[in-house]
Nucleic acid binder design. Structure first.
Lengths: 231, 231
DNA sequence: CCAAAAGTGTTGGGACTACACCCATGA
DNA sequence: TCATGGGTGTAGTCCCAACACTTTTGG
């Protein structure tokens, strides 16, 4: 045991970049919290906090998301670890960043503990962020864009039942380019991961779109056996 | 400052998975070191050690690689951070793993500090490893295989001057499948990142292959502007 | 009956696959 | 001159981009 004591230890935090889509505004959004503690009190930041002994990194990330934003049961993946010497005014603090994908309508925001409030912000209209969180967020964005083109993680951003148009809009928003209607449909159907429902959209002033959910089984299968999934 | 002291702090280490190719044996290899300190003294492990205050994570990784294996000036990229509660018998220790790509002939192995010796091992004939390093290594392997198919990082594993056959062998070894000769050449040349040299292979009992290096400029350009690079 | 979005068919071209073949060299 | 790998040509196939069109629905 004596060995480790030769070395100074850093503080260890986790931070989370929670992505969600706003279909009305057609923008990609992230959850930020207004800090209720020093340092950077009153400033917007990514939800996060210190990891506790006995807790895995992922558990810590899930806990912080729950505590500071009320969000739980989401797709979560480790992003990158940030450890530049002076990234935290409190001293030596290393942060393991995660990113999460959620369907906003299905998750009500609720700030507690170290956060005054939690809110969705469009990724291209962000306030000034605490720490190096602007950099963390950019890294997450790059990862999301990159991954979306070769892994089927996009589904995580949709509600349970969705139309093909919504799926396409998702891709258009995140990738920042219009996609060909016909070709998109062909591509998606060729993957054979959607289950057609006997339901259609309601409350629209035009032909209602058919709704789909996805076939968990086939989807998992794809994810496992190194799929090629390009849009 | 008082805030951080409420929280217990973990030890923080970096570990490195150094990949290299053995063209004679046609295998992918990694550098392991025999530990000269407790815990796991005498056991094989990934090179690594504690991060120091004031040092960035990447600097720490580079330093450890240099100290324990003598390897420097290599392609290095963060892999993943491992933080399961009981991964280290010394207590709470979190490790940020990196992976590196080198051309073995151009780097002489030399163990110092906490390592008794450093040696190349084929990835499919590994000894029992200390800590959770077997898991770290598997993660690195997956990443290398994945990344190789969409980013031009393979070049980092080759000597300065190389033949197309070597490049192809590289892909065949790492991906674990034979590739069509003709098609591979077409693909590679279509990327337009190779600079043809006025040199050919020597010391072979058959037609000597032309040697190439790559065009740093075009290569960097590709890497930047989100290339699509599929084999 | 019309606006607005859902949903479909088809074609040309480019890229990839799968071959069979010729070339240069040392022994 | 032959064994060995280096290096090339090309036809068929499949996938994808780029279109223009029909269908359904609420107002």
């Amino acid at each position: 045991m004596s060995f480790t004591y030769e070395f100074e230890r850093p503080g260890l935090t986790v931070d989370g970049v929670i992505f969600g889509l706003d279909f009305e505004e057609e923008t990609l959004k992230v959850v930020l919290v207004e800090r209720d503690v020093e340092p950077f009190e009153g400033m917007w930041a990514l939800p996060g906090g210190f990891v506790r002994n006995g807790e895995s990194l992922e558990d810590a990330a899930l806990r912080e998301l729950r505590e500071e934003t009320g969000i739980k049961d989401v797709f979560l993946e480790q992003l990158y670890t940030f450890g530049k010497p002076n990234r935290d005014p409190r001293g030596w603090v290393v942060s393991v960043a995660y990113y999460a994908l959620v369907a906003p309508d299905q998750h009500h925001l609720l700030a507690t503990t170290d956060a005054r409030r939690a809110e969705w912000f469009p990724v291209n209209k962000l306030p000034k962020l605490a720490f190096d969180h602007a950099e963390v967020l950019q890294t997450a964005l790059q990862r999301l864009r990159g991954k979306l083109t070769y892994a089927p993680i996009g589904f995580e951003l949709l509600p349970d039942k969705f139309s093909i148009r919504q799926l396409q809009t998702l891709y258009e928003i995140v990738l920042g380019q219009k996609l060909d209607n016909r070709n998109f449909r062909k591509k998606i159907f060729s993957l054979d991961v959607l289950k057609e429902l006997n339901e259609i959209q309601t409350g629209v002033a035009h032909r209602a779109a058919r709704l789909y959910k996805f076939d968990e089984r086939k989807y998992k299968q794809l994810t496992r056996q190194g799929l090629t999934f390009e849009i």
